[in-house]
Computed example of a mutant assay.
Amino acid sequence: MNNKFEAIKQFAAEHGERAELIEHETAIVDLASGVQVFDINQAAATYIVEAKEGVFAVVASAAAHLKWRQLGCELGLHQIHLAASEVVKDRTGYDMGTVGPLFLNGLPMYVDRRLLTRSKVYCGTEDPHHTLAIDLQLIIENNAIAGYFNGEYFVKSL
């Protein structure tokens, strides 16, 4: 296991009730595999995106895909798109499909306001066989928050 997972394991141990590491047999690497393990409405996906303005993290409800162009307009980001796997690995240390919302090397983060109503969210840990159940406030406290958005206005129908 890489040092991201080890750091997340230590983070969960240090934060007791607010962060719990959950082990599961099914590897979660995308929305379809996530649905097999957890209530997807409680899951938070961490996307790494590129725009003319730079590289950013976007944490949104994993229950639906986002309309990136419209979201980019809302956030003031031009030519926004999902980052290539090499960019994700280079900028965050995570492999594509296993990105979590912690230890993102200082990337500015935008957060979906819909997640603020949940007592905890499920998210990636770098290890596809472990998920972090975490209080969203811990994610906010441990990242460089660039802003918030209301994800319900930027959802594609699946």
Rank of each mutant, 00 (worst) to 15 (best):
Thr46Asn: 14
Leu115Asp: 03
Thr26Ala: 01
Phe38Val: 12
Ala7Ser: 13
Ala60Arg: 11
Ala27His: 09
Gln137Asp: 15
Glu126Pro: 00
Ala144Phe: 09
Ala63Pro: 00
Ser119Thr: 09
Val49Asn: 07
Met109Cys: 13
Trp68Leu: 15
Val35Gly: 00
Tyr153Pro: 00
Tyr94Arg: 10
Leu132Ile: 07
Leu107Thr: 08
Arg113Pro: 00
Glu17Ala: 14
Val121Ala: 01
Leu115His: 07
Gly76Tyr: 10
Tyr47Gly: 01
Gly93Tyr: 12
Arg69Ile: 06
Phe38Tyr: 13
Ser33Ile: 04
Thr131Asp: 11
Lys9Tyr: 07
Thr98Cys: 15
Gly124Glu: 04
Leu138Trp: 10
Ala19Asp: 09
Gly72Phe: 07
Thr26Ile: 01
Gln137Ser: 14
Pro108Ile: 04
Glu141Cys: 04
Ala51Gly: 06
Arg113Gly: 01
Ile28Asn: 03
Met96Arg: 14
Arg114Gln: 14
Ala44Leu: 09
Leu71Met: 03
Tyr47Val: 02
Glu141Gln: 14
Asp135Met: 06
Val55Asp: 10
Lys9Met: 00
Cys73Met: 12
Gln10Ser: 13
Asn143Trp: 04
Thr125Gly: 10
Leu116Val: 05
Ala45Val: 08
Asp127Pro: 11
Gly76Lys: 03
Glu17Ile: 09
Ala57Met: 03
Leu77Phe: 06
Asp127Met: 09
Pro128His: 09
Val155Phe: 12
Ser61Thr: 13
Val58Arg: 03
Glu17Met: 06
Glu86Trp: 00
Asn150Ile: 03
Ile48Gly: 03
Ile22Ser: 04
Ser85Lys: 12
Tyr148Ser: 08
Phe149Pro: 10
His78Gln: 10
Val155Met: 15
Val87Phe: 05
Met109Tyr: 11
Leu116Trp: 03
His129Met: 09
Leu138Gln: 12
Thr98His: 01
Ser61Cys: 08
Ala62Ile: 00
Thr125Arg: 09
Val121Trp: 03
Ala45Ile: 08
His130Glu: 09
Ser119Phe: 00
Lys89Met: 02
Ile140Glu: 10
Ala146Tyr: 07
Thr92Ala: 11
Leu31Tyr: 13
Ala63Lys: 14
Phe149Ile: 09
Glu20Arg: 13
Tyr94Trp: 11
Gly106Asp: 11
Trp68Val: 11
Val37Leu: 03
Val35Pro: 00
Asp112Pro: 02
Asp127Glu: 14
Ala44Tyr: 09
Thr98Pro: 00
Lys52Gln: 11
Val29Pro: 01
